[in-house]
Each structure stands twice: as C-alpha cells, then as structure tokens.
Amino acid sequence: MIEIEHLTKRYGALAAVDDVSLTVERGQIAALVGTSGSGKTTLLRMINRLVEPTSGRVRIDGTDTAALPPHLLRRRIGYAIQGHGLFPHRTVAQNIATVPRLLGWDRARIAARVDELLELFQLPPAEFRDRMPHQLSGGQQQRVGVARALAARPDLLLMDEPFGALDPVIRAQAQTDLRRIQRELGTTLVIVTHDMAEAITLGDRIAVMEQGRLLQYAPPREILTAPATPFVARLIGRDERPFHLLSLTCVADLIQPGEAEGPPLAPGASLRDALSLCLWTGRAALPVEGGGVVTLEALRRAAEGRSP
C-alpha cells in the first residue's frame, strides 16, 4: 500500500506538484493522467525519490521512504519508462538481471529468475536470453523493460508512459499482458499516461492532475459519470464518454434471455465491441456464447451511464 501525504515539489516559485494526497491499495492499479506539465511524472518520480519532495511524505507499507537511502529504496521498487531505457551494451538477460545483481543474488538464482520472466512475457529464453537490445522489435524491447523492472519481485511497480513508443496494435496487446501479469503477481502498480483510454483500460482508480494539483481520484466509472471539474470532463472528451463507459463493462453483465441470429459473441467481450457489431451488421440483438442475447436497447441504456 502506498500512502502519499501532502506531497509538494517546488522549483523556485513554481509548484510542479502541489499538496497531493492519495492512497493506492495493495494489488491495485492507479493511473495518473494529465496533460504534459501537469506534474504526473514528477509525482511518480517522488515515490522512488528520483525527485526529492519539497515537503510531504510517502509511505510504502507503512514505512516512510525518506528513512531509506534512495538507491536501496529503488532496488525494492520496479521502474519502467517510455522507450524502455534498456542498457544497449548488455544482453537481454544481463539487462533483466540488473537489480538482482545489485542485490547480490547468486548466479543460479538470477539465471532461473531471468528465464522465468522471459517465459512470463512470452519471449522464449533460449532464443532471447543472449540477444542485444537493438536486435529486438519495439514491442519486445518494451516487454524486456517491464521484465527488468519486475526482476527482484518488487511489491510496487512504477511505470512512466511505458507504452508511449508502441504502435496501437502492439500497445493494446501490451496493455492486456500487463493487466494479466499484474493480477497474477499481485503487484501494486502506479502508471503515468496522458491517454485517458489507457487509464480507463488499466486503472482501478484514476488520478487526474492539472498544474500540479490533484483534481479527482476515483474509479473510472465515477470519473466518467461524475467528473469533478470541467477540465476532467474535457480530458475525457464529451464525444468519447459513452464509448469509454461501454468499454468498462463486459457482455456477460448485460445478458438477457432470448435468441438472435448470427455468430455468437464471447461473454468476455466489451459492450463497446457489442455496440460496434450491432451497428455494423444492422441488428437489434446479438447472441452470446452459452445462451442469451445482448440487445441494442440495453447497450443504449448502458451508454447513458445507468447501471446495467
């Protein structure tokens, strides 16, 4: 659990982060959203003390981070950034082993951990272990960057626009993978993004920031249905709101009894996919695998923000 209390960072007269307090529960994902210059990255970097706060404090599982030497603190916290920051002169395995080596793990344990992580990220170890970073595709580099951040089994993982350099297709896949791995490991995750859709897809809670201040910290549905300020509403985008809302819920939650024509939809598909299919095929109802239907009418109601 991370508790951020009245955290402030001033550069001269300018407050990059202004009296921000928030709590991230263990195993949850908090997404920090805002325009560039909103202070979201500074806030993230104060958690592992790459930036020293002017005032306020951060506690991780009850321990004040100021009590530890910064480099020892950082070895306990995973950190992954945009453009991955892989060491170009080290192999994939050496990159992933960075923190375990700093912590003095023995050789066999490190090797086993590296292979385990490569498997987890679907990079066959025999093939990828000894490659150099420049021999990987962008998506693979990004996965190695996250694997490196997770190498020493940190309870907390910080990510700064980790998918910023990826194209949309790979990006969607990377988000799904991250979500899966995070649930599997139970890691607490704080992720910085400027993309509201990404924040909605990933975040259990979303923190919206503007000019160093925290405007709203709430679950995605609440952000969408009850934006705290006009700025939050603008960040979501008026036109996008119904689609964001639909993407939060899956088909299984909206099944009604009945029957309809055509190939059935997976119960895990999002309502947004269902709506898209309805509009494209011109049908008022779609069959769902395992029985039942979703109707266009129900989708319409869901898109207005009423509970299904």
Partner: peptide, 15 residues
C-alpha cells in the same frame, strides 16, 4: 548516453 538509459540506471537503484 541516452537519457532514458541514465534514468533507468538511477530508477533501478544503481548508485
């Protein structure tokens, strides 16, 4: 040296 590499080294806990 790319800034990302330097940032990563510090972020991973290197002195």
């Amino acid at each position: 040296v790319p800034p990302g590499v330097r940032e990563a080294a510090a972020g991973l806990g290197m002195t």
